[in-house]
């Protein structure tokens, strides 16, 4: 009985939120365009959260550490992207070809900076604590998070900084039945889907991916089978950092605003997404990110921005009550 409620009650719970408003809109003669706009904005925002959530879930899956510094790695990715705008001369008047090529370079460099940073953090702050009680690396992660926030303050100051809207992010690209799809929406989805696909393919098909999965299941057994566990863990941090760097650029282009504190907020949302989806599970992280994105946008539009964090966490609590292991279960050592 509980399994039935857990499975179908959860689906009902998730669908109820948009469905209720869709019915209200239709009854009020507004049609489905408003809820459609909410869903589009939610999916594109959620795509960014998904990219960050993957970093949390990858690391937790393999060493069971909540890498609290991951949000700040994402923030550094955004800052790097913004800094590269001026280095590469990307401005509001840059032509389309120059812009596309320039942004591709920015994407690659931001990913590399964030990826390298994440590997360095693992090497310096987490690896020496591999055998220590679990609280030690957790506190270290919080410490690294604060250090990176202060690096952000030193770099671009402590205020929110509006940055050039290079892609005219909110310009409508096309419209389907009153549902507007902006450039930013397309960008977020177009960058996220291939990256998630590549990551999944890497984890599922490559030798290093197999090593990651083996290490996640049992690091000692993996070591006995000849897997270099340290290298495998470093690769995991590299992958998480690369995705955070990509998310950093998309965020900068999407929000046209960067802030040293953006990583804390985004990290909290993305970590919630990872838990909601089932921490340690890649598909779960993506699903959690998208769901949170949609809940946020519907709440912002219908209930009020000031209540959105409460609505998101109310959903998290309800999902945890129905399925403590998250939406798609927990593929970690503990969950088997």
């Amino acid at each position: 009985m509980w399994d039935f409620i857990s499975k179908y009650g959860l689906i009902a719970l998730l669908v109820a939120f948009p469905l209720t408003y869709a019915i209200i809109d239709v009854a009020g003669g507004e049609g489905l365009s408003r809820i459609g706009n909410n869903l589009v904005a939610g999916l594109s925002n959620g795509a960014i959260w998904a990219l960050i959530a993957l970093g949390y879930t990858l690391v937790y899956g393999i060493i069971e550490l909540i890498n609290f510094a991951h949000g700040e790695v994402f923030m550094i990715g955004s800052f790097t992207a913004f800094a590269l705008y001026s280095v590469l001369g990307l401005t509001l008047v840059t032509g389309p070809l120059g812009l596309v090529l320039g942004l591709l370079v920015v994407l690659v460099l931001s990913m590399l900076v964030s990826g390298s940073l994440n590997v360095m953090i693992e090497r310096v702050a987490y690896r020496p604590l591999r055998g220590a009680p679990k609280l030690a690396p957790l506190i270290t992660a919080v410490g690294v998070s604060f250090i990176l926030q202060n690096v952000g303050i030193l770099w671009f100051g402590s205020s929110q900084k509006g940055i050039p809207d290079l892609i005219r992010a909110q310009q409508e690209l096309f419209n389907i039945g009153g549902v507007e799809v902006s450039r930013a929406d397309v960008l977020a989805v177009v960058v996220t889907i291939p990256l998630v696909y590549l990551l999944t393919a890497f984890v599922n098909r490559s030798r290093l991916g197999k090593a990651m999965r083996a290490t996640a299941q049992d690091p000692e057994a993996a070591r006995l089978m000849g897997i270099n566990v340290d290298t495998t863990i470093s690769v995991t941090f590299l992958l998480g950092g690369l995705l955070a760097g990509a998310a950093g650029l998309i965020y900068a282009l999407y929000q046209t605003n960067v802030w040293y504190f953006q990583g804390f907020t985004a990290g909290l949302i993305a970590f919630t997404a990872a838990v909601m989806g089932g921490i340690g599970n890649l598909r779960g992280a993506v699903l959690g990110g998208l769901i949170i994105g949609i809940i946020q946008q519907i709440s912002d539009n219908r209930i009020g921005n000031e209540w959105t964090p409460a609505v998101v966490f109310a959903y998290l609590v309800l999902i945890m009550v129905f399925r403590p292991q998250g939406l798609i279960g927990e593929e970690t050592r503990e969950a088997g």
């Binding site: 706009n37 909410n38 904005a41 925002n45 909110q170 965020y251 999407y254 929000q255 605003n257 504190f261 953006q262 804390f264 907020t265 985004a266 946020q296 946008q297 519907i298 912002d300 539009n301 219908r302 009020g304 921005n305 000031e306 959105t308 964090p309």
Partner: peptide
């Protein structure tokens, strides 16, 4: 007269209302 959350990444959906 809506309150805004300082830490929100953006206010697009709120503004659309």
């Amino acid at each position: 007269n809506d309150g805004t959350d300082r830490n929100a990444p953006n206010y697009r959906s709120l503004a659309e209302g």
